[in-house]
Simulated assay, not measured.
Amino acid sequence: MNPDATTTGADAIDEAIASGNDFDGSPIPQAKLGLYHQVMGLEAGRQRSGVSNTMRSRIVRIGAKHIPQAELNQMLVDADFAPLKDKEIAFYYSGK
């Protein structure tokens, strides 16, 4: 990885994968890179259900790491998204 590259931000992981090196400079094993690219290729060919659905999914998946459940739920409702579903609460918040 480029020594000036950052380990923060949305693109940091993609940049490391593209370089084939982890943040510590060690090479990512080819078996891991190969499997990653195989699965991402499958995902690239998947039909999408709509931009709003994908936006909501990303907000929930990432927001749950940073925002308390009640606050994230209210933020979703305020933005006219569906509130958190029971299965999302169980998955993302059951261990917190």
Rank of each mutant, 00 (worst) to 15 (best):
D78W: 15
M75L: 15
Q74A: 15
K65Q: 15
R46K: 10
E71I: 14
K32I: 05
L76D: 12
A18C: 02
T8G: 14
M75F: 15
S57V: 03
I28E: 01
F23Y: 10
V60N: 06
Q38P: 01
T7L: 14
D80E: 15
I17W: 10
A18I: 03
K85W: 06
L35D: 04
K65Y: 15
D4V: 14
K85Q: 14
I67D: 04
Y36A: 03
E88D: 06
P83D: 04
H66C: 14
E15R: 05
G41D: 04
M1Q: 07
S26W: 08
D4G: 11
I17G: 00
P83W: 09
N73V: 10
L33N: 00
P29K: 05
S19H: 02
F23P: 04
D80G: 08
I28T: 04
L72S: 09
M55D: 08
N2P: 05
H66N: 15
V60T: 02
Y92D: 04
R46F: 13
L72D: 13
A16P: 03
P29Q: 01
I28H: 01
T54N: 05
N2A: 06
V60Y: 05
G9W: 09
S19Y: 06
Q30F: 01
G45L: 05
M55L: 07
D24S: 03
Y92H: 13
M1W: 07
S57W: 04
H66I: 14
G45R: 11
E43S: 09
L35S: 05
F81C: 07
A10Y: 13
T7N: 15
A70D: 14
P68D: 13
A79Y: 12
V77D: 15
G63Y: 03
F23L: 11
V39I: 02
N21E: 06
D14T: 09
I28C: 00
M1F: 09
V60F: 00
S49T: 13
G63M: 06
R58T: 08
N2S: 05
N53I: 07
P68Q: 11
A16C: 03
F23V: 08
G95M: 10
N53Q: 09
I89C: 02
V39R: 11
K87S: 00
G45D: 07
K32A: 06
G9N: 07
N21I: 01
V77S: 14
K87E: 05
F91Y: 07
L72E: 12
R58D: 02
L35H: 09
T7K: 15
L84W: 03
Q38F: 05
T6Q: 13
R46I: 08
S26K: 13
D11K: 13
P68C: 12
Q38I: 04
D80H: 11
Q47A: 13
E88A: 02
